[in-house]
Nucleic acid binder design. Structure first.
Lengths: 237, 237
DNA sequence: GCAAAACCTTGATTTCGATCAAGGCGACTC
DNA sequence: GAGTCGCCTTGATCGAAATCAAGGTTTTGC
């Protein structure tokens, strides 16, 4: 196993060597030859905050940044249905029943592959198919986690849960108890959209968390959590 | 293609011949030999309404009935995160991050297969893996559909959306405009749980829909929709 | 540097759905 | 048939968050 990995290391394309997403994402399932073929067909992009990501039949490793997934409602409003944090995988086979848009919340770096190529490799390499399936199921679990929020949680619990989710995703190696600081990549309007609240309520609840000493806020977007545990206690689940 | 299907027909196990789920579910991806092997290892169950389905490492075709998926909250309450209607597939590889329970809402008939066997076949047969992936993504789409409901919809829109969802799933060959009747397989409490409302509000909104002529209610559980379109107009999306 | 725009906060009032309360079926038991 | 239990409906009241309103702060553009 270790030997096999070392053998791979020797041949991996230079572009992949420093890629954070390589082991965890799709690429970890591929052998050196496949990785080379994929790297050949891949392209790196930078997308700046606020831009919609084109989804022209590609999968992409999200190398850095944060992306929101939204669905348009008939009344012109949009519902946020999920987020992607680096180093996540974007894209999926098959069409969604209702179209979902992806938009960069921060500046974003992507490594994209043609879907057809990946899908073909998935036929040759069961491990790759398994990873795609695992990935879809993880997203399903995340979505279901948020289904509890709607009706059962108070506004303040929703905001606390949201902060916790962002903290955990932005700081993947979440050092346990200690305090965590991060830049909120969303506007109040985005948060409100996601949580099914209004901007005003989100703002009020953040203020309350600040007054209660659970978080500190510098410059609107810079958040520091006093402690993970303290916030967990406010999540209501 | 047609020839291949005919060849399969000749050899399919007797038990599978009349199975409604065969083409649509997993089994449609298998050749006759695999189907025979699977049928060999499969077992049929009946589960009566109100019973929890054991999920001891199996996939199951849901041949008839309705199943609810729930997640336990720390406060003892439960959140309904989804439903399965015949002829659906139950079960998944990998553990969910947080456990999900499945409970029969009506009497239910299942055809179950050991997970290990299916997972092994998925390695041999890319088409099977593809179907599992498609299935997971469909469930993800469904879950995301309901994420819009929480914050953005009024109680009455939620109830209308819910009725529509049940109608569409219970009557798979949804004849378009005409009126549809069905037995609601859920108690008011279940509906309330799913929609994040209270029993009283669900009851009130059903009464309102009845008074407005959008639905008729006989015996609490027997629902008739005047027309799909009329209900769609009340869904708010 | 100034003006405009975007984003955020806080306060006052209103509203929708929760909560509290009472009573009506229908099914089952004894 | 009377009594109990589970499920549902309807009414009255209350409260959390929406809405309405005003003003503050940060960013952007010229």
């Amino acid at each position: 196993m270790a030997a096999r990995q070392d053998a791979q290391q020797a041949d991996v394309p230079a572009i992949c060597k420093s890629c954070e997403a390589r082991q965890g994402g799709l690429c970890g399932a591929l052998n050196a030859r496949q990785l080379a073929e994929l790297a050949e067909a891949s392209s790196m992009h930078e997308v700046s905050a606020g831009t919609e990501l084109p989804d022209e039949g590609t999968y992409s490793n999200l190398l850095s940044g944060v992306v929101k997934l939204t669905r348009d409602l008939s009344d012109g409003r949009q519902q946020i249905v999920g987020f992607h944090f680096a180093p996540d995988l974007l894209g999926r086979p098959f069409e969604a029943k209702r179209p979902i848009k992806a938009e960069a919340l921060t500046n974003v770096a992507l490594c994209s592959f043609p879907r057809t190529l990946v899908d073909r490799m998935a036929n040759e390499t069961p491990e790759l198919g398994r990873r795609l399936l695992k990935h879809a199921l993880d997203e399903l679990d995340d979505a279901r986690d948020w289904m509890a929020a709607p009706g059962r949680k108070t506004a303040s619990e929703k905001v606390a849960s949201f902060l916790l989710m962002v903290a955990r995703n932005i700081d993947p190696a979440h050092r346990p108890a200690s305090s965590i600081s991060f830049d909120l990549p969303l506007t109040r309007a985005d948060i409100a959209d996601f949580l099914g609240l209004t901007i005003e309520t989100v703002s009020r609840e953040l203020s309350r968390l600040r007054l209660d000493g659970a978080i500190r806020i510098a410059n609107k977007r810079q958040i520091s959590l006093a402690s993970i545990a303290q916030l967990e206690a406010r999540c209501g689940d």
